[in-house]
């Protein structure tokens, strides 16, 4: 075999069209390819990824076994018994090269959060690290309407874009092996709502009583990529009251 360009990030470069950002297609071994728009968190790129995911799904390509759209990339899984990677890449370049992105309506959710204390064990460290008071940190975190850039990592885990620059915080050097469900956390330039207990390398800011994933609910995954979230600070009593309420769901409205 030859390693030639394969050590490093191999890429077929595709020139951008009117709506299409520059993307590269790189192998994920013989399991998939990554259509990658690079190290970026911006709404336009994410809208294109959303459109690309919909286009690949609609095309019903034989041999494609799944897709994972993220902030800035679309992984397309395939089985080489039905289609080679070279064929898949050629098909995707044609399909995605001149893709049109259209506006679509989405839901805005209002999600209550208890910040700090036992609900957010890294809250005080984050205040110190960024030289902010508790009130300032909460104000900075609750101000934006966050776009749900992707659902990933664990069922229903929502990754949000739009975190204030002043709250960007490098992830922990060693991930925690356990964090509670409903954690609201910061990792790098991202903030997120977790859905189930899971390991995490992110800093824990607070917790919501909302379960974004519940296998016994229809639909089990409440929030989708392209929706938006506003956080509202509540106290521990408010948290326990909502947690005790059966079938409680947060308020939301349609937006375009």
């Amino acid at each position: 075999m030859t390693l030639n360009a394969s050590i490093g990030d191999v890429a077929q470069n595709t020139p951008p069209g009117p709506d299409t950002p520059a993307f590269t297609i790189v192998p994920l071994a013989d399991q998939g390819v990554l259509v990658d728009c690079g190290e970026t968190i911006d709404v336009e790129t994410n809208r294109w990824i959303d459109a690309a995911a919909r286009a690949v799904t609609a095309a019903q390509l034989s041999g494609v076994t799944g897709i994972v759209p993220t902030y800035r990339s679309l992984a397309v899984e395939y089985d080489s018994r039905a289609m080679t990677q070279a064929e898949l890449i050629a098909t995707l370049e044609t399909l995605l090269g001149g893709l049109k992105v259209t506006q679509r309506r989405y839901r805005r959710f209002h999600i209550p959060v208890v910040y700090g204390g036992e609900f957010g064990v890294d809250f005080n460290d984050l205040c110190r690290h960024h030289a902010l008071t508790s009130e300032e940190l909460i104000a900075l975190h609750t101000a934006p309407e966050y776009r749900v850039f992707m659902i990933g990592f664990m069922p229903g885990f929502a990754y949000l874009g739009g975190l204030n620059d002043r709250l960007h915080t490098s992830r922990r050097e060693t991930p925690r092996t356990w964090t509670p469900a409903g954690s609201v956390s910061i990792g790098g330039q991202q903030t997120a709502v977790s859905s189930v207990e899971a390991p995490s390398g992110w800093h824990l800011l607070g917790r919501t009583p909302l379960r974004t994933f519940d296998a016994g609910r229809e639909p089990p995954i409440l929030i989708e990529a392209g929706d938006s979230i506003c956080f509202e600070a509540i106290d521990g009593d408010g948290f326990h009251a909502l947690q005790a309420e059966r079938d409680w769901l947060p308020r939301w409205e349609w937006r375009t």
Binding site: L28, A29, Q31, G32, L34, D36, E39, T40, I41, V68, T70, Y71, R72, S73, A75, E77, M150, G152, F153, Y159, S170, R171, E173, G187, G188, Q189, Q190
Partner: peptide, 9 residues
């Protein structure tokens, strides 16, 4: 060691 999250297989 931080990248903008993308897919894991």
């Amino acid at each position: 060691h931080n990248i903008v999250s993308d897919a894991l297989l």
